[in-house]
Design a protein around this nucleic acid. Sequence first.
DNA 1: ATGCAGGCGCGCA
DNA 2: TGCGCGCCTGCA
Length: 288
Amino acid sequence: MQIQEYKLKNQKSFYLKHIFECGQCFRWNLQADGSYIGVIKNAVIHVKQEKQEIFFRAKCEGKLQTIITDYFDLERDYDNLKNTLASIDNFMKNSIEFGEGIRILHQDFWECIISFIISANNNIPRIKKIIERISKEYGNKIEFDGNDYYTFPTPEQLSKASVENLRNLGLGFRDKRIFEVTKKVLEKQFDLEQIQKLNDTEEICNQLLKLDGVGPKVADCIMLFSLQKFDVFPIDVWVRRVMNELYIHNEKEEKVSREVLKELAQKKFKNMAGIAQQYLFYWRREVS
DNA sequence: ATGCAGGCGCGCA
DNA sequence: TGCGCGCCTGCA
């Protein structure tokens, strides 16, 4: 592991606050100077942005540029994508203007599975704390610029945790779910490598739904944030709210079934429903 | 301080 | 098969 630096110039559709605070990730922490530090896989990364220049400094294995390009999905043409979405209607256009620097990160499949199981009936500060404690307890320590950071534990590492250990880390009723899923992954009843390679979103979804603690919302988040499946449409309370207000004209939030909402999203946003959801979600959460 | 937070699983019609 | 309720915990 060595220290590396990398710099992006004239990078459009990239704004750290939008990327890290739109609810897709839990391991990036804001620093006093506006920069962020995060742990991704085996790397600790410091990132600082000055307008369209982005400075990365990291302790990592392999080439930092490769890691950054993959993780921040830099090869995707967001300008094109945003133009297409913005032309659908003015709600989309406004949401995109509001969150113009959002990018969907390409995160680790396993870490996403565990993180979004933890997210059920939970809030972001608490989710972040739990993941931090899990990493500190079961992951590897990395020293970087005089501080200690911890990688997210592998299935092998996390399998050392008993249900009781997990409960003591503050997981609450999710302790058994994490325990069971870890066991399933370790025993290859759920084969991470194999399932990641599947192309069909529906097929992957059906596999994910077999995991304890994974329902439709969590499955969609996992596929969107770690497998780049942009055709999914995760529906949580905020998305339901914004869809009710904008597209259903149902201010009282009467229960519209998930199926109806998904169909509507599919019809409007096609294979970009996932990213459309992210702009709408971010806008609705920030303006209220 | 009671309700709620980015759901899920179970039990009951 | 579809719906309502309870659930760990921390925070306002």
